[in-house]
Design a protein around this nucleic acid. Structure first.
Length: 896
RNA sequence: GGGCGAAUGGCUCAGUGGCAGAGCGCUUCCCUUACAAGGAAGGGGUCGGAGGUUCGAAUCCUUCUUCGCCCACCA
């Protein structure tokens, strides 16, 4: 079958993806495990149902697909399980935005109707990201796709909640939590992004109640002063030695509050006195507990001032109240001073609103007991991070972990399975009846907790839950622990650490053995991509313009152990050129196979007798073997950039630039055996290369592979490249001798091309005497390859000489290692110019000789450097001296 | 305030102790029947600064500068 002249990525990609899907080759049967086939499993980081594929997904999916395709070809029972996440806040936000266009809020709809709207969203858009992954060529097992609100998944979450509940790990507590007034929900500590903003630090005078003066406190959030219930100073602070215990008259609120001593107050900041607002600051909250201070809530859940703020502030927006408080304090002459100050402003990770620390009742999970084993698994190497440095980050977090706030005041998500009585008692259960039994009340009298669970509470179970846990399914038995988790560093804590906790705690083993942290994709200027900046790159657009394989390859060229990666469209274009190169090289091979077959009726079958192979044959097979080794090593160590580099260099430089060119005259040879042999080596090299490249560039390699097969186009599953064996190590193909010989041929060719270019000789010009000369093994190698060199150097013919010409000056020449090349350019020789060139070259050689002899002249070097390094240097200087001698002889001959 | 990255030719990046590499861009030549998304030949870097270790440093150590990321309860 023939390949079209122009490589049409889109058509090829659509066609072969459809064929793969049809073949069922993405799936795997767990029954195959244990029968000598190692199991290999990856679960994808489930994208939000709100999202469409962005460039980060494209990179991640490509990595997962490469690993899966590689292990599948290597013979593992490999499967990559996809899925999506309900993404509580994110989804609720988009649905709220959608209904807002009809002028509705979620409260207008009511909880049930609103949740139904979310489900509608999920049904409509929830799987669209799968189709986008299809476009990239992902060989995920779509039949196993899971969603975090699937009935069976909900089962897993109840199991998790109730088990932790039973063990007393889940508790309810009043805490100051980070509250998003826009989302109207608590969020966990790690969903907070602090941003430094220019702000002010205000110094207020708080008068003593007895009129004996005042104390000065500083604040960046003046409106919170309405909730102050104390002023604290450090007990060691001599400035306040006699003042502790005095009563302060809180301005505006006109409440009396105590001046207390607490080590939390820092002596080196401001005046050393700090206002304490237990309901609106985490530290103040803890300080308040120590001193049994009242907690006055002055800001509500929607960011307005609460009734306790008093008139005229109650009901004002928090930022308006800030201005009002400032004005009123200043009016009373209590504003001592205002200074510019960089304020660390906590922002909501989801909606970027300024968060408000707020006192509220939430559900928490105790972390200490769960964190310890999760840290241990990394310390003892059961889980390995790639790059390794992330292990330290992970451990640092786990070693300093705080309890996890798991309740969210949202409607979309897993509702917390706790039921309340009217008088404030509660119990957890799989359903209301279980809770009623536990509380010994009538189920009809119970109300379910209004909150839902943090999204990460469900994704924490991902690897085991998608494999069927808590049921002991064949999938779970075959594929747990999974092999690799590949994800972005931003969810290292949010997700990765939590999965390790639940895996160890519930399944009794780590959820994955390797964690590969992918680089963050930045835009061309090195800035983070974001919707608001509008600098995002649409991977589907890239795939449509340059091909999915080109996008994959371009991304992988930059995906190593880096922290981030600058996306470059130019690279994608160039990867497209690489695809084109592969396509055309393959067309050449196909054409050659067809021609040799027609001439001799049959192509020489592989394997052929190694003794028949020429130096270039052995060379290309040797290079191919080294490339295969490099690719395998690269995949094993998540160095996709190295794999890409090796493949690129092998295909383009070794195969196309040298081997194919070397093969051309042989294919035209009068000896059909010679032509058949060359065609056969071309074929086996290309086939092996295709198998090596397939995980990275699946579509184009499959298309070419199929074209190489002598069958009709309705390929059976077994005939697909995607299930062919990945190239095995073949130490027998490595041939250093052939590589040496080819290196000499290449050197000679390059030197001749260079001479030709410098002398301005047109290609193919009939020259009376292009020649090579050499001694010893070089002479043998060169003499066996004069035709080859002539062809490569585009010279009509090349002679072999014993030595440099000594009588006729109309030659130009260049020394190469152990040999010399010449071109007779007759009268065209410009002697002064040639002498100049020789002098230039000689100067360069002299410089090298000088450097080398300086080294060898250093007794320390000779004494202490390893013997092979010294020997190499000696050989080097000898070669250089030989080169110098030849240059001198040439110059002398020309009268220089 | 801590921790971690990055700094290599005009650009984007490889390179973990032994003579500085690739791709793109640039210069010159070539549409040679696989490929002009191509081929050939070139030019181009005192490897961010300063110290140190070593026979030898882009590479190891110290320190500084610039940029980025993560973490942290300092009004």
């Amino acid at each position: 079958m023939e390949l079209s002249k122009v490589y049409d990525a889109r058509q090829v990609e659509e066609r072969w993806y459809a064929r793969w899907l049809e073949s069922g080759a993405f799936g795997a049967d767990p029954a195959g495990a244990g029968a000598g086939r190692p199991a290999y499993c990856i679960t994808i980081p489930p994208p939000n149902i709100t999202g469409s594929l962005h460039i980060g997904h494209a990179l991640n999916s490509t990595v997962l697909d490469i690993l899966t395709r590689w292990r599948r070809m290597a013979g593992d029972l490999a499967v990559c399980v996809p899925g999506t996440d309900h993404a509580g806040i994110a989804t609720q936000n988009v649905v709220e935005r959608e209904i807002a266009r009809q002028g509705l809020t979620r409260h207008d709809l009511g909880r049930e109707a609103f949740v139904e709207r979310c489900w509608e969203w999920r049904r409509e858009y929830g799987d669209r990201i799968y189709l986008q992954m299809h476009r990239l060529g992902c060989s995920f097992d779509w039949s196993r796709a899971r969603f975090t609100l699937d009935a069976s998944y909900v089962d897993a979450i109840y199991h998790e909640f109730l088990e932790w509940w039973r063990r007393g790990l889940i508790y309810r507590g009043a805490r100051v939590v980070n509250w998003c007034p826009r989302c109207r929900s608590a969020i966990s500590d790690i969903e907070v992004n602090a941003e430094e903003r220019a702000g002010k630090l205000y110094h207020f005078r708080y008068p003593f109640a007895d009129g004996s003066g005042h104390v000065v406190v500083a604040t960046t959030r003046p409106e919170t002063m309405l909730g102050d219930t104390a002023v604290a100073v450090n007990p060691a602070d001599e400035r306040y030695a006699g003042l502790v215990g005095k009563v302060v008259r809180l301005p505006l609120a006109e409440r009396d509050i105590p001046l207390i001593a607490d080590e939390y107050a820092r002596m080196d900041f401001g005046t050393g006195a700090v206002k304490v607002t237990p309901a609106h600051d985490l530290d103040d909250f803890e300080c308040g507990l120590r001193h049994a201070l009242p907690q006055v809530v002055v800001i509500t859940e929607d960011g307005a001032m609460a009734p306790a703020a008093g008139e005229p502030y109650a009901g004002m927006d928090r930022f308006a109240a800030r201005e009002a408080v400032l004005r009123d304090i200043a009016a009373r002459g209590l504003l001592e001073r205002t200074e510019d100050y960089t304020v660390k402003t906590p922002l909501c990770d989801r909606c970027k609103s300024v968060l408000e620390p707020l006192l509220s009742e939430q559900w928490f999970v105790k972390q200490a007991e769960l964190a310890r084993p999760a840290a241990e698994a990394v310390r003892d190497g059961r889980i390995r991070f790639h790059p390794e440095r992330y292990a330290a980050t992970y451990l640092h977090w786990l070693d300093n972990i705080r309890d996890w706030c798991i309740s969210r005041q949202l409607w979309w998500g897993h509702r917390i399975p706790v039921w309340w009585t009217d008088d404030g008692r509660y119990a957890a259960g799989r359903n209301v009846d279980e809770a009623a039994t536990a509380l010994d009340v009538d189920p009809a009298s119970l109300r379910q907790d209004a909150d839902v669970l943090d999204t990460w509470f469900s994704s924490a179970l991902w690897p085991q839950a998608v494999l069927g846990w808590p049921a002991q399914t064949p999938d779970l038995r075959a594929w747990y622990p999974t092999n690799v988790l590949a994800t972005a560093q931003e969810i290292l804590y949010l997700w990765v650490a939590r999965m390790v906790m639940t895996g160890l705690d519930f399944v009794g083993d780590v959820p994955f053995r390797d964690v590969y942290i992918t680089p963050t994709v930045l835009d061309e200027r090195g800035e983070r991509m974001s919707k608001s900046k509008g600098n995002g790159v649409d991977p589907l657009d890239m795939a449509d313009r340059y091909g999915a394989d080109a996008l994959r390859f371009a991304l992988m060229q930059q995906t190593g152990m880096n922290q981030d990666l600058r996306f470059s469209e130019e690279r994608v274009r160039l990867a497209g050129a690489f695809c084109n190169k592969l396509w055309n090289a393959s067309r050449f091979v196909l054409m050659s196979l067809a021609e040799t077959a027609s001439r001799q009726g049959d192509t020489i079958e592989w394997p052929v007798d190694r003794a028949l192979l020429t130096t270039p044959d052995r060379w290309i097979l040797s290079r191919l073997t080294r490339c295969a080794e490099a690719v395998r090593t690269a995949f094993e160590s998540y160095r996709f950039d190295e794999a890409a580099r090796s493949l690129y260099a092998f295909l383009w430089d070794d195969f196309c630039d040298w081997y194919v060119e070397l093969a051309k005259p042989r294919l035209r040879s009068d000896d059909p055996g010679e032509a058949g042999l060359a065609a056969s080596v071309l074929r086996v090299t290309l086939e092996t290369t295709l198998r090596l490249m397939h995980p990275m560039m699946p579509h184009i390699t499959e298309a070419i592979w199929q074209a190489l097969q002598p069958h009709d186009e309705h390929a059976a599953r077994e005939a697909l490249l995607m299930v062919q064996p990945f190239p095995e190590p073949r130490p027998g193909w490595v041939d250093p001798h052939a590589e040496d010989r080819m290196a000499l041929v290449i050197d000679a060719t390059r030197a001749l091309r260079n001479l030709r270019a410098e002398a301005g000789i047109p290609p193919g010009a009939r020259l009376r005497g292009a020649a090579v000369a050499g001694v010893g093994s070089a002479a043998t190698t060169l003499s066996e390859n004069t035709d080859t060199i002539a062809h490569l150097a585009r010279l009509s013919e090349i002679g072999m000489r014993d030595a440099a010409p000594t009588t006729d000056g109309r030659w130009i020449g260049a020394p190469i290692r152990g040999a010399e090349v010449f071109v007779d350019i007759g009268d065209a020789l410009d002697i002064p110019k040639e002498l100049e060139r020789l002098a230039r070259e000689r100067a360069a050689v002299e410089r090298d000789i000088e450097r080398a002899s300086a080294r060898l002249g250093n007794p320390q070097f000779v004494q202490r450097a390893p013997a092979d390094v010294v020997a190499k240097e000696r050989a080097n200087i000898e070669a250089l001296q030989g080169k110098r001698a030849k240059l001198q002889t040439r110059a002398a001959l020309l009268g220089g």
